[in-house]
Structure formats: C-alpha cells, structure tokens
Design a protein around this nucleic acid. Structure first.
Length: 805
RNA sequence: GCGGGUAUGGCGGAAUUGGUAGACGCGGCAGACUCAAAAUCUGCUUUCUUCACGGAAGUGGGGGUUCAAGUCCCUCUACCCGCACCA
C-alpha cells in the first residue's frame, strides 16, 4: 500500500472492477427480498451535473449499498429525462439537431455519474427520447384515449412569448414563465387535456396508504384542494326562472345572501346582458378584465372591482326574496360553478366588495362585529345562527348539516364536493417531445393511431422554431402531417403538438423493471417482482406536479391491469438544495457554481460523497463550504494511514463496545436519513482508533463495512489490503450485539436543585442507596448543600441524581 | 390569508425524545516538526468573572408545568418554503 492515498487511481480501479463484475446488476431472483430504490432521473442539460444531483443520488446509493450488504436483491436504476425545452432552445441557437445535443449531454452526464461510483444498474438505462421508450409513452396515451380521458378543447392557455410555448398552470409562477421568467399572456387555442380530475378523490384519499414526508402529503392535498359543501340553485326571473347554480361551503349562511356574483366569463353573462339596463358598462368591464392576465387579476386583489347587472335579480330559495346580480373578477370561472352567493357579513372578500359598493349586509351568525370585519370563525364558542328562520339558535356546523338537508328536501340544490385540481393541459407546440399519436379526419374526427404503428417517430425537421402563430414546428412538415385516416382511409392530418416533458417521467420507474421489452411496456412478471418503488427520493420542486402526474398515470395503469399496485411509491423523501458558498442559490450569473468534475479530480468521489452527506441535515437547504470539503479529505487521508496499525487481533473491552455502538448508530441513522450524524459516529470511532497503537483487525473490518456505503472506493481498497478476495460491496452488514451496547460502569450527573455539581462513576444498575451515598460524598455537592439537610433525593438509575435541598 | 417548517457557540450543526447543552466537522489560538512555508501532529476554543480553586449566565423574547425544560404547555417575534380572490 502506498503511503499517500491516491484517489484517482483507486477510484478508477474500483469503478472498473464493479463494472466488470456487474456487481450492481439487478436480477429477478426471488430467493432474496427485493428492494427498489429510485432517484429522479436527471434532465441531461448542457451545463452538466450540478452538485445538487449527487446529494440525492448518494443518499439512496448509501441505502442501496446497505441493503445489498443486508442480503436484499436491490434495483437502483438510472436514466434520462431528455425531452424538453432547454435542449430544443439550445439546439436552435447553435444550429444543431436536438437529438445530437441530447446524445452529447447524456454522454457527459453518464461519464460524470460513473465517476462518482454510484451503484446503479447501468444495464437498465432508459432514455425518454428513444423511440423504443416513447413508443410506450404513446401507447399509454392510446389506452387513456380508449377510456375517454384525453379530450381536445379550445381554451385560454398561458402563452410564453419568449419560449413560444403554451404552459400548464403549474408552469406559471407568479405570472411568469417558470423556465425563462418572462411575462405570460393569455391566448385561446385548441389543446389536448387529460382528465386528471376524474382521479382527484383517489389521488387524495390514497395518500393515507403511503409513507411520504408529511409536508409532501400536505402539498399534494393542498393542490388537490377538496372542499365539501352544497350546490344551490337561485332562480333568475328574467330568464324565465332558469337556475343560477352556485357552490358554497357555507350553506348555513344562505339567509345572509345579499347579492350574487358571476365571473366575467360565466356562460349566462351574455344572455343576462340583454336584460340589464347598463349593457355598455357591463361590456366595458368584461373587456377590461379579459385584457388582464391571471397575474394582474390576482395581484390586484386588494383593489376590488365589479359591475352590477342593473335590473337583474336572482331569487334566494330560502327567503324567496330577490337579490341583485353583479359581475366581478374576484369570482373565478374555473372554480366551482363560476358564480357565488355573496354573504358579506361572513366572508372577507364579499365584505370588502359590499363595503366598496355600498351593498347591504345581514348578520346571520352572532359572535362578531360585522361593522368592523366579516365574522368567519365557524367554530367560535359563541357563534349561533340568527335571522335564519329554522336555523336560528344552532351552531354554524349544525346549521350546515341541517341546511343541506333542507336544500335537498325542497329540491333546490344538493350536497356537493369541489376540487381545485384542474385537468392537465397535455399538448405543447414544440418539436422536442413525444408526438401525440392522433389523426384528425374531416369525416371521423379525432382517430387514434393503431398500436401497430407505434412508435410514431419524430420526423427530422430543418427548423425547430415555433411559428409566430403558435403552431408546432411539426405543422410545417406537410409530408408528415398529411396522412390517411386509420378509420376511413380518407386524407387526414396528424396532430402536430407534442406531449409535455411530464409524460415520459410519469412512468419511467415501470420501464426500469423491464427496460428492453419490445412487446410490452414491461412484463407483468417483472412489475410484480419489483413494484412498488420501496423508496423514492427527489427534490421538493417535484413533490407537487411530477408526483401527482405519475400517481395519476400509475392509477390508470393499475385500473387497466398493467400496474400491479394502486400507488407507485411506497415511500417518498426529499432532499434540500445545495446553495452557493455565499448562501445564495447556485447559478452561473451569480458565479457561485461548484463543478463536481473539479471536486472529483482534486479530492475524489469519496470526499464529495461524504461531504455532501455530512454538510447538514439531509432535508434542509445548506450552503457549500470548500473548507468543509477539505475536512472530509483530511478524514479519509488520516484513515488511510491507519491501515499500517491493523493487527490480526480481536477487539475487547472499550474498543469492542465502541465498535458495536457505532454499528448501531450508523445502521439507525442511515434508515432515518441522518447521514450527517452517521458520519459523525464513524469519525468518533476513527478518533478512538487514532489513540491506539494497534487496531484489532475485526474492529477495523467492521468499520470498513460501515464506511463502505458512504466512501465505497477507499473502503474497498483498504478491505482488499487485508487480503480479502471478495469485494466489500457484497460483504455482510454487521450486526450490533445488544449486550455490548451497555457499559459496565456509568458516569452520571449529580445535581443540587437542578444544577450540575459533580459527576460520579458507579457500576451499572448500582442500588439507589449506593448511588445516593456516592453523590452526597462529593465535594461539589457538599459545598452546594452548605450543611443543609437534603429534603429529597431523586435517583434516575444510570442517568442522574438530583438532590433537592 | 391558508398549509408546512426553522430559530442552539465565530460558522455548519449534535443532544439517546423530559435527565451532564454544544457530539462531529469547519474556523481560530498556542505548541511540535521545518532554514522557511505548506502539509501533518499535539493541546485549547459558549460567554462573563476569578491569579487560581471556583462561581455565574446561557438554546429567538416573555410566562407556565416539573425535583429537572433546547425538548412539554401558553404567548409574542423574526425568517424560510409551498399555495393563494378556490366561494
């Protein structure tokens, strides 16, 4: 063994050995329990790997390596989520084909990941842009079509003028494009939609069956946004008593309704307009709101606006009295029924609106002061119904139940549930995505491609730029677009929009189970063997959309008998961001980006892996520290010198106990993702070894096994130096002996009136009397007692003595 | 506004879940080695006070429960993340 540790040769050596031995290849071997560890497959950008990627990959690599040593049959796969905008934009800018850009980027990512020594099964690599992969993405779309889940509709879409692409609501952040940060405008366009709302209830309730971090579940619930209440019909005399349907979560306040509000886009508005005395003012208002972006509408929330439909009234079904009808943009066309009953006394927005326009208020719940603010505390002790006919005297929750009964009995409404979740905008006017396998025939309408024609390959095109009108680049490929209707054989046109990037990532974890299958998405046998994913780790930025979309697709695949389980991921955790050294988000423009290649070259993959796990709690954002990184390098260099001190002895006494304590600590802390303290435990044992002249080999071997998941290369090298022929990666994980976890004697604290005055060392489980006597004979205790008699002595065995004086 | 979270030395952070606050690492200081520097090694390193022994204070602020509180309860403050005119 050379004196100084050479990480470059050692790391290359072991990476080669693992590859040659196929040490991490997963097989469907049912003699051992399976474990499926999953990380979010990367988007292979031109910038190369970010130091944030290895944080997640190392964490599950540690878990995967530990599981293998524990005897599990482990699947830890990797692939590329390679369709998408940045590549396409880069290709346009540099006059290359997106395909070749993608291939280059993948090659670079593959090299970088391999240099970090992750125990991926490289034989199962998938690439969402490969035709034999997206064939199955398209196949899933055809299955969705059979069940009526995709539909095409003309709808306002968020349009990013700079990316020239329609965006899902989820991709618009604060009125700006999530990708480029430019302002988003509204356009009307025909778009493919997926009916994810049909799965809203199951996506919500099945969260109870999975082990996700609580905050992830909370975000999913929040996004789905379930509200229970009632739909109530108000009749509109001007339209011959046709109903204006509203949704409310507060049917108890029905007697407090003083006006109605329709969203400007509500379908009844046009008809009602002709009955209003002020049609021009109303039209002007509607046009003004149409010009506003969603962002302006919500950002201007403090300034309420609206217009009355003068002369138009709706009849409150509870009181039979007419109330005026208004139009205001604080009511959203896209939620509920697009219309509300306004109860200004008990709703903050209605209260603000009524104040501004001088509309009346009726208090129907006591307990607040509605002249100052809306009273909305439904669970307030003093809250009782008033001015509400048969509801008077009830608490609001009682009144809600009773009113729903009344509404249903008297037949002007029904109990109802609404969700915030909206259908998924599934088409993009871009080139670099999966073609949607649909054909539009003038006679037959939208017709799916037969499955035998899949994959529908992306044609090569000269220009990738979206046209100014917003059509996909594929629309310019007339040869490709013009085709025959699969149903009637007549001339027809292909869909030229492509799928969003979310499509390929919604099922990739299934493909890993059987990545080379050309008959099926994956064989039922392989899916039954590997799924569900046992542990999925990824970033918080994907805990809403990617998780929701992939759960949706998975549930659908379960329904049609493809996936064996209703939920794809048994457990989901998240890692925190790695910030720049200046505590800001890493970015080129801030000049604080750390390049993993350089770290690996200078300090080695093991140092990087250890450092990223040690830098702080795994789920928290944490700034990079080059000094901290060097500390890890010192730790490994120091370890290296210990090899010379190893003697073929058996550990005894304190060293044996320290070793077993470390086994327990490291084992537990890997499972709870407390990697920072797991490494601290390894360092503590290292410090113990440092004090020894000779290190017993059995203790040293245990240490190397514990180190192996974290710093696999150096651990293998030192393991081999001991004369082992089999690699460490497949050695057995050590078990802590409970008998060795307890000390023979314990040092316990002695307090006087709760303050530490001395420590005493006594035999484990010594009788309380002996412990008391030892405590009282301590100088520090005597001094603090100052000749006073103790009133009471509390002894917590093996922990603490507190003398109360 | 709603939901989730955080607050501990100069810094990143530990604390067996109510029992010796500051593990581990970084940084700093002193010493050894060296012509010198780097690297390495050895010690010290919460603050105040004391020549010293020792003592006092201390986990964002205030209050409470307890023999005992970073940990439990009440209350206030600050910051971070997500969602947000969602009826």
């Amino acid at each position: 063994m050379s004196e100084r540790y050479n990480h470059q040769t050692t790391e290359a050596k072991w990476q080669k050995i693992w590859a040659e031995k196929e040490s991490f290849k997963a097989t469907e071997d049912s003699s051992r329990p399976k474990f499926y560890a999953l990380i979010e497959f990367p988007y292979p950008s031109g910038e190369g790997l970010h130091v944030g990627h290895p944080r997640s990959y190392t964490a599950l690599d540690i878990v995967a390596r530990k599981r293998r040593m524990e005897g599990f049959n482990v699947l830890y796969p990797i692939g590329w989520d390679a369709f998408g905008l940045p590549t396409e934009n880069f290709a346009i800018k540099t006059h290359q084909h997106p395909k070749s850009v993608t291939q280059k980027n993948i090659a670079n990512f593959r090299r970088q990941l391999k240099s970090l020594g992750f125990s991926f099964d490289w034989s199962r690599e998938v690439d969402t842009t490969a035709p034999d992969y997206y064939k199955w993405t398209q196949w899933i779309f055809l299955q969705l079509w059979k069940k009526g889940l995709p539909y095409k509709t003309n709808m306002p879409v968020n349009w990013c003028p700079s990316c020239k692409v329609g965006l899902a609501n989820e991709e618009v952040v604060g009125g700006e494009c999530e990708r480029c940060g430019g302002a988003v405008v509204q356009r009307r366009r025909s778009q493919w939609m997926l009916k994810i709302t049909a799965y809203a209830e199951r996506l919500l309730s099945d969260l109870d069956t999975v082990d996700y971090l609580e905050k992830i579940k909370a975000q999913q619930r929040n996004w789905i946004g379930k509200s229970t209440g009632a739909e109530i019909d108000f009749t509109l005399p001007v339209l011959g008593d046709r109903a204006l349907k509203v949704f409310t979560t507060r049917p108890d306040t029905l007697f407090g309704v003083t006006y109605m509000v329709l969203a400007p886009e509500h379908p009844l508005v046009t008809e009602l307009l002709s009955h209003a005395k002020n049609p021009n003012a109303v039209k002007a208002y509607i046009e003004a709101t149409a010009r506003k972006s969603d962002f302006d509408r919500t950002e201007g929330a403090k300034e309420v606006s609206g217009v009355a439909l003068e002369g138009v009234f709706a009849v409150n079904p509870a009181t039979k009295k007419p109330v005026p009808v208004w139009i205001a943009d604080y009511v959203l066309a896209t939620y509920g029924t697009g219309a509300i009953m306004a109860v200004p006394a008990h709703d903050e927005r209605d209260w603000r609106f009524a104040k501004k326009f001088g509309l009346p208020m009726i208090e129907v719940i006591t307990g607040g002061d509605i002249s100052k603010e809306a009273f909305t505390d439904i669970d307030c002790k003093d809250a009782r119904m008033v001015n509400s006919g048969h509801l008077n005297g009830l608490t609001p929750p009682q009144a809600i139940d009773k009113m729903i009964g009344t509404v249903e009995r008297e037949n002007y409404g029904k109990a109802s549930i609404k969700y915030k979740l909206r259908d998924w905008v599934f088409s993009r006017q871009r080139y670099w995505g999966e073609p949607i396998p649909m054909v539009e025939c003038p006679k037959c309408g939208w017709v799916p491609l037969p499955e035998s024609e899949l994959p529908l390959k992306l044609p090569d095109v000269e220009h990738y730029q979206t046209s100014e009108t917003g059509e996909s680049p594929l629309s310019l490929m007339t040869d490709w677009v013009n085709t025959q209707c699969p149903q009637c054989g007549g001339s027809a046109k292909r869909e030229t929009d492509t799928m969003p990037q979310w499509a390929g990532s919604s099922w990739y974890f299934l493909r890993y189970c059987d990545p080379h299958n050309d008959k099926e998405l994956a064989s039922r046998k392989a899916l039954e063997f590997w799924t569900p994913v046992d542990w999925y780790n990824g970033g918080m930025e994907h805990t809403v959309l990617h998780l929701l979309y992939s759960r949706f697709w998975h549930k659908f695949l379960y329904d049609i008998g493809v996936a064996p389980t209703p939920e794809p991921y048994a457990k989901r955790t998240s890692h925190g961001l790695i910030l720049g050294e200046n505590n800001e988000k890493m970015s080129k423009s801030r000049g604080n980006v750390v390049n993993p290649d350089e770290v690996v070259k200078t300090y080695g993959a093991d140092t990087l892996r250890l450092y990223e796990m040690f830098m702080g709690p795994f789920d928290q954002a944490i700034p990079w520290s080059t000094n901290g990184l060097m500390g890890m390098w010192r730790f490994l260099s120091r370890l290296w010198t210990f090899s010379e001190k190893v003697r073929p002895d058996k550990a005894e006494g304190d060293i044996l106990r320290a070793t077993h304590r470390t086994i327990r600590n490291v084992s537990e802390r890997i499972e709870t993702m407390k990697f920072n303290t797991a490494i601290a435990a390894l360092m503590t044992l290292t410090n113990t070894f440092g004090e020894l002249k000779e290190i017993p080999q059995d203790a040293w071997e245990v240490f190397l096994k514990l180190l192996a998941p974290f710093a696999p290369h150096i651990a293998e090298e030192m393991w081999e130096a001991l004369g082992h022929k089999e690699i460490l990666a497949t050695a057995a994980w050590p078990k802590a002996d409970p008998a060795l976890l307890v000390e023979n004697s314990v040092t316990i604290a002695v307090q006087v009136n709760g303050k530490l005055r001395a420590t005493i060392t006594v035999p484990r489980d010594a009788p309380n009397k002996d412990v008391e006597a030892a405590a009282l004979s301590e100088e520090g205790v005597k001094r603090a007692l100052n000749d006073k008699e103790p009133k009471k002595i509390i002894v917590v065995p093996n922990r603490i003595v507190n003398v109360v004086a």
